[in-house]
Design a protein around this nucleic acid. Structure first.
Lengths: 345, 345
DNA sequence: AGGCGAGCTGCAAACGGTTACATTCTCGTC
DNA sequence: GACGAGAATGTAACCGTTTGCAGCTCGCCT
């Protein structure tokens, strides 16, 4: 039960009175085609409503012009912007993007198992925050799948990462500079099966900043939850329920921070007086509610990742001269945006 | 300069001592293959690290197992959730999703021009809120590209839509019932080049609800801006700058409403006393700030659109018996979620 | 006039699967 | 032991491009 097939290159060739080779060359804009021939071929193709079948071209060339983008979700604030940045860049360079959310542990398992299946399906792969093991990376490598990772890095592939340790450090240091000494932490799930390293690194930065001031770590001030507003809200409630709540808190994402903020509201508390807060991301709404945060610009990160990937693909064409993998850290730098959640107006 | 090619089906056939046809059948799980033969083939394939080339299969079968998803953006709250819902459904049914953001007018022009190019590239298309003309739809139809539209509808293709007229009506009616008589409107760009019909329909509902109460329309109370928080904020500021601002406002999206809310905050105003507000979407944060809103569940809409598309594809296989296109309105109904932005606690 | 190279074009072999149709087994049955 | 049906397998055409190589045509130079 085949789909109806349209005209093929052969039909165009016949109609135009040339060979299929010439049609192919003419339509793809290759040189060595007489201008009038090209024009005639184009006219015929137009008239016949001819459209080349990419599957056939892919089979012949071995290139698909498809890039796979794997992210934990497609609808989180951070990831959707990362995707937007990456896709824009890909589209501008003649590639199409296959987006592949890998949310729960099961899916992740399946995804990792079948990673290498991507071999002939796509020209390249961008993996965001889904830490793949070095073993899996090796498989990808030997399978010859150009890959760029974001949010984590492997031995052989280029990566685009945020210095999450610095994120934690800078945020915490800011609170310390304001005189806070009891600083809480609202973390994304640290040992989530997706095992992305972001929470761990930010925690390390937070811890180090405290240690640098000689402040003992009190793990009761560390709460975690999902990387969402409700997650942040629940975590903040648990902090507020403590006998001796912190005076400030570092929240690992703005969305969590919004949730945390609403927990404050519910109890009639406000920032920065009752609780200073710094988030991460610089969500559009952060400015609206006056949340101090660290700007990450995921859109730009995505674009950079795509850029690196395309470079990698271009280079792998001539000679497998795979130079040392670039680990590109926060191409845009980290910017702390100070607002009312830490500094009273 | 070809990419390195892996083992082909022929290599497997030789090694396993069978024909390529048998390998093909064995690996795809077709019947009429002796169990032991199948096992041997699988072993050999495994040992050789064989992976079928989808391009070849696509060429032979004419099916790509690819679906294109075109949306105005990939990172808006509504669209990213729509995509998530659609992609989940597609993935679960063996399809991959190509996401294609079409944001600015130029891109839209290009997209519409090349719509028909999708013919042999994908098995189906979902177009969200990018009103395509009936002409373009006809082209798609004659090109035989199974399509489902969302957010708008065309003559021949199934569509999944929200009753945006009702959205406007219900929201406004709610405000009327609370006794408001001067009700403002904060709209998404009504004559945005993307020309999606959402703002227009919601406006019509708003207008009708007012008319039903015999309230004259005051267009000075209608402001519009981008479908974002800053857009909503700016619009609200212009409303507040009026000599005689409204006592309530219907805002066409929650994100805009958040911006509008922050404009209130800036002036020391609060809802529902100074300004009652109802939004649309039921964004996660709506609950946190207590925003009354109309729940849309884009995730479910996306899933439904994908479902309809796959049905359409399955049906078009046997007989072109294209039954009358289904126009499916808000499969989940419209729910008004009442919160503090309209009803004091 | 003959030679030569550049510019165009064509031929035909891949690329790697799928599948209609033909062929060969394998048994149970009479 | 011949027969026949159905299961298992093989043969080969086909899907629609790309591209290396060869051949042809001209104009220009000597």
């Amino acid at each position: 039960m085949q789909r109806k097939r349209g005209p093929s290159i052969e039909d165009v060739a016949r109609e135009a009175g040339v060979s299929v080779a010439t049609v192919s060359r003419a339509l793809r804009g290759l040189p060595n085609v007489a201008p009038k021939t090209r024009a005639r071929v184009q006219d015929v193709a137009e008239g016949l409503n001819y459209r080349a079948d990419p599957s056939a071209a892919r089979l012949a060339t071995g290139r698909t012009n498809l890039i796979e983008l794997a992210t934990p979700t497609v609808d989180g604030w951070y990831f959707s912007r990362f995707l937007a940045g990456a896709i824009d860049h890909l589209l501008a360079n003649g590639y199409e993007a296959i987006t592949h959310p890998v949310s729960d542990p099961d899916e992740r398992e399946r995804f990792l198992d079948q990673l290498v299946q991507l071999e002939k399906r796509v020209d390249g792969l961008i993996v965001v925050d889904l830490n793949i093991s070095e073993d899996a990376a090796s498989e990808l490598w030997t399978a010859g799948i150009p890959t760029v990772t974001a949010g984590f890095s492997t031995e052989r592939f280029p990566s685009v990462i945020v210095d999450d340790y610095q994120v934690g450090y800078i945020a915490t240091q800011h609170l310390l500079e304001l005189g806070h000494r009891r600083i809480g932490l609202i973390s994304g799930e640290p040992n989530h099966p997706l095992a992305f390293s972001v929470p761990g690194l930010r925690l390390a930065g937070y811890t180090a900043a405290l240690a640098a001031e000689g402040i003992p770590i009190d793990t009761r001030l560390e709460k975690s939850g999902k990387f969402t507003a409700p997650g942040g809200r629940a975590a903040m409630e648990r902090l507020l329920d403590l006998d001796d709540p912190p005076t400030a808190v570092f929240v690992m994402s703005d969305e969590m921070a919004f949730g945390a903020w609403s927990a404050l509201q519910d109890r009639g508390l406000s920032w920065p007086g009752d609780m200073a807060m710094v988030g991460v991301d610089d969500h559009e709404l952060a400015e609206m509610v006056g949340l101090t945060t660290i700007r990450l610009l995921p859109h730009k990160l995505g674009a950079t990742a795509a850029e690196r990937l395309l470079e990698m693909i271009d280079n792998s064409v001539d000679g497998d001269a795979a130079s040392t993998p670039i680990r590109e850290t926060a191409p845009q730098g980290l910017e702390l945006i100070k607002r009312h959640s830490t500094i009273s107006s």
